[in-house]
Design a protein around this nucleic acid. Structure first.
Length: 550
RNA sequence: GCGCCCGUAGCUCAAUCGGAUAGAGCAACGGACUUCUAAUCCGUAGGUUGGGCGUUCGAGUCGCCCCGGGCGUACCA
């Protein structure tokens, strides 16, 4: 079954050809209508052409409609309305065919081969292993994972990657912080580092290490101890990150360590390559990259005057490694505090000769946690933060994923913990899941009543407006997925699910599925099956469970 | 100062490429369970889309100027 949008586009395009008008098929705008009086799908093509030719839009619309092929298996009626919209009323035959089409495709319904297997990578979360994962990480985890699912559904080959910042100053600082607490446990004083990490987790690390290794680090000299404790702490922190991600249902194909790059001297090779491009220079004892030539505000340092590679240089090497590993497109999800970093990274990759649009960054905006209607104030300095783990334990994985993604990535998010926890009608997650559970229960009930859907079913018994509305919505899944995936707007899928649930509950209220009328019951049971598939496929992309009962 | 994100109903948010009468949910009020799950449904009320000017057949959406909120602006990561 071809997408209705494409079918109608072809019809219109053929009509335009008969009128000797050139217009690219894929540019013919078609959208589902908001009001039933306007039919099912509408196009504004006549208005667009009117502004070009100077003819009245309603006249052009009339010409198009006259020349239009009106396949009765698809189109019931075509109207011209308003300033010149052409409204298509689709036939019952078309909608009924959708039922068996969806059931036939099953878990493949909604998927396309748009991406043609192109290999791409999404890197997300990549939180420093020097502190616990916070709520922004949770939001990034949801968005990254769901975007990966969406892009897979439209035919890309997608890998998820987590970059472990396990080198540099921050890690040494963690080691020093833990070392100080560790010595404290054994009654010895070691000054706590300036800018060290506060927070209970540092004590916990020290306590765990003391329990596992005893006092054997106390006799080392300070630098050795800090290095040793940094390494152990790092492993523990990364293990915790991996555990929480798994618990949240996010499975990274790769956890990529920064030290790996440093050991291979990958950053020096990249420095070499950059120097060959001629976009570097020395000044004040440092080596600079001329990123301002590529639209950055100013030039950036690659090697400091102390001879140390900057984080930026290593990060360039990291992104090069992604290309070298065969990814054709790179997506990064960063926090709001990194947006100033985008220009320089794009500049570097451009200078190195990678294709202009092969790298893009999505900035995920901040999250305000609310409890009892109040924003919870957090202070990283004082170590007072609400951890990702706390949130998902408190509200559950399903609700957390739904809430984090039910908003444009670029919008700030108010996350109301009380609301997400509520198992009531105030909570949109349950509204959707309840619809799925209701359908499951009907199917179960029908089976208990001995109603079988095997053999020929008279789909023409499906004829009520609530059924048409439901089918119309079911058929939109594919386009919603393509739109959400290509525009990086995963909230379109949650929005769609809420609409679908609403249409379903409405249907449920007005029409009974299992009744005395066996033929009608069987037809509606197929409709229920198709609806269940759409709920299940959508929820699977969101990584949210589809309960059989609630 | 400059750059990015944002401003839509009392609250939280939608609105696909610029489309028709700006929609949902929550909160408020009034109704609907003898019937496959009431975690549901129906109804009422709620708006100068922060303000102004412009672009055009048409602007919440695009451009310019204000107002307000958030974030960034390192030889840190």
């Amino acid at each position: 079954m071809k997408e209705i949008k494409q079918i109608l586009q072809t019809f219109i395009s053929d009509a335009l050809k008969k009128m000797n008008i050139e217009f690219a098929v894929e540019d013919i705008a078609l959208e589902p209508t908001k009001q039933p009086e306007h039919g099912d799908w509408a196009t504004n093509i006549a208005m667009q052409l009117a502004s070009k030719t100077g003819t009245s839009p309603r006249k052009i619309a009339g010409d198009i409609v006259n020349k239009l092929e009106k396949d009765p298996g698809i189109i019931e009626r075509v109207d011209i309305a308003g300033p010149g919209f052409i409204n298509f009323h689709l036939s019952w035959e078309y909608f009924r065919r959708a039922v068996s089409h969806i059931i036939e495709l099953g878990d493949k319904f909604g998927c396309t081969d748009f991406g043609k297997g192109e290999k791409l990578q999404i890197e997300f979360v990549s939180a420093n292993p020097t502190g616990p994962l916070n709520v922004v990480s949770a939001r990034a985890a949801s968005i990254g994972d769901i975007m990966a699912n969406l892009l897979s559904a439209i035919g890309f080959s997608v890998d998820r990657e987590f970059y472990i910042n396990d080198a540099g100053r921050q890690v040494r600082l963690l080691g020093a912080s833990v070392s100080s607490r560790y010595m404290e446990l054994f009654g010895q004083t070691e000054p706590f580092p300036e800018d060290g990490y506060h927070g209970d987790y540092v004590y916990q690390l020290a306590t765990e290490i003391a329990a596992e290794h005893g006092d054997r680090f106390t006799s080392m000299n300070v630098d050795e101890r800090i290095a040793a404790l940094a390494q152990i702490s790092l492993e523990k922190m990364v293990a915790a990150q991996q555990r929480i991600m798994a618990q949240f249902g996010v499975h990274f194909q790769n956890w990529f360590a920064e030290t790996q790059l440093r050991q291979q001297k990958a950053h020096l090779q990249v420095l070499d390559r950059l120097q060959q491009t001629g976009f570097t220079y020395e000044q004040d004892g440092a080596i600079w990259f001329r990123s301002s030539q590529f639209g950055d505000e100013k030039d950036r340092v690659l090697i400091t005057s102390d001879g140390e590679p900057t984080y930026f240089l290593v990060d360039i090497a990291y992104h090069c490694s992604k290309y070298q590993r065969g990814y054709q497109k790179l997506f990064d999800i960063w926090g709001p505090d990194h947006h100033g970093y985008i220009a320089r990274m794009k500049a570097a990759l451009l200078a190195l000769g990678y294709p202009e649009n092969s790298f893009s960054v999505e900035i995920v905006q901040q999250v305000n946690l609310l409890r009892s209607g109040e924003v919870i104030k957090m202070s990283k300095r004082a170590g007072k933060i609400i951890e990702m783990e706390e949130v998902i334990n408190e509200v559950g994985v399903d609700a957390a994923r739904f809430f984090f993604v039910n908003r444009k990535c670029s919008s700030h998010l108010d996350f109301d913990i009380d609301l997400a926890k509520k198992q009531s009608d105030e909570n949109p997650v349950y509204y959707v899941q309840y619809a799925h559970a209701r359908i499951s229960n009907i199917l179960k009930y029908a089976a208990e009543q001995g109603i079988s859907i095997d053999g020929p079913v008279r789909l023409d018994r499906i004829a009520e407006p609530e059924e048409k509305q439901l089918l119309k919505k079911l058929l939109q899944l594919t386009e919603i997925i393509v739109g959400a995936a290509t525009s990086w707007e995963p909230h379109r899928l949650t929005g769609y699910l809420l609409e679908l649930a609403s249409d379903y509950h409405h249907f449920y209220q007005k029409q009974r599925v299992v009744s005395e009328d066996i033929e009608l019951s069987r037809a509606r049971l197929l409709l229920m099956q198709a609806t269940k598939i759409v709920f299940a496929n959508s929820l699977k992309i969101l990584g949210i469970s589809a309960p059989e009962y609630m």
